[in-house]
Structure formats: structure tokens, C-alpha cells
Nucleic acid binder design. Structure first.
Length: 120
DNA sequence: CCATTGACGGGCG
DNA sequence: GCGCCCGCCAATG
């Protein structure tokens, strides 16, 4: 595991593992839950750098519902594919201008449970 | 050391 | 909705 200077990766990756089937979270939301407000980019870096093979990484999208992976990348197709297969719906053109319908699918975590997980 | 670059977010016009 | 700008900050050249 690559290690960032102040390593918040464990917390972030754990939170990702909690996102339920058919739901999505935003990078900023994960940052908030991890106690790192305003650090959405750190979450993105963490997912890019670490091995996410065992995680539902595809459930992490931008706050506005956009899929933030590089346009045309295999990973982007994979993410869209997986979300669709989980029943996640999109606004606009489902192929090109795809935006997840956040109001329907955004994860609403049990905040009490989250606090417990990280020593509340 | 400085500049640019991101799997981002939010405010404003 | 869209573009612009700013805050964020580790990594990269």
C-alpha cells in the first residue's frame, strides 16, 4: 500500500466499503465522513493510488452526479456499466452526458454508526 | 524552488 | 445550465 504523508487512506477506503449496493457517494461526502472537510481531492487521489479491486469504488461519483474518471478510459466504462447493473439511474443521455440521479441514489449513512466506527 | 495537474466542491454571474 | 474563479494539497516535472 502506498502511503501518503498523513495517511488517511485506511479511513477513506473503509468508508467506501460501506456504501450499499445501488447507492452512490460523492468524494466530498466521503471526505466529510472521514473528518476531512474540504478535501474531496484527497479522496480522489486515494482511490487512484490504492488498490480498489476489493472495494465498490464505482459507487463514488462527483457531487453533481458526474463520473469523474478520464473520458474514454476503460475504468469509466466499467464504472458506468456497474452502476447501471445495480439499477442506478442517470439524468440526460445515459451514454455521453451521464449524471447519476443523486437525489434518488445518494447514500444517506447512519451517522451514529459512522461515529462508532471511528471512535466517536 | 516554482508551476502545473488532478477520480473535487462551491459560490457567483 | 454553463463558465469562471478560488480553495484544497500531494505529486510531478
Amino acid at each position: 500500500m502506498k502511503r501518503l504523508r498523513t495517511d488517511h487512506s485506511h479511513k477513506i477506503l473503509h468508508l467506501v466499503s460501506l456504501v450499499p449496493y445501488g447507492c452512490v457517494v460523492s468524494y466530498g461526502q466521503l471526505a466529510d465522513l472521514a473528518g476531512l472537510p474540504g478535501r474531496a481531492r484527497l479522496v480522489g487521489r486515494t482511490l487512484r493510488v490504492h488498490n480498489t479491486e476489493q472495494l465498490p469504488w464505482h459507487r463514488v461519483v462527483a457531487a453533481n452526479g458526474r463520473l469523474s474518471l478520464p473520458k474514454g478510459s476503460p475504468a469509466l466504462n466499467e464504472q458506468r456499466q456497474r452502476l447501471i447493473s445495480e439499477g442506478v439511474t442517470f439524468k440526460g443521455n445515459a451514454i455521453t452526458g451521464a449524471c447519476v440521479a443523486m437525489t434518488k441514489h445518494q447514500w444517506q449513512p447512519d451517522l451514529g454508526a459512522i461515529l462508532m466506527l471511528f471512535d466517536g
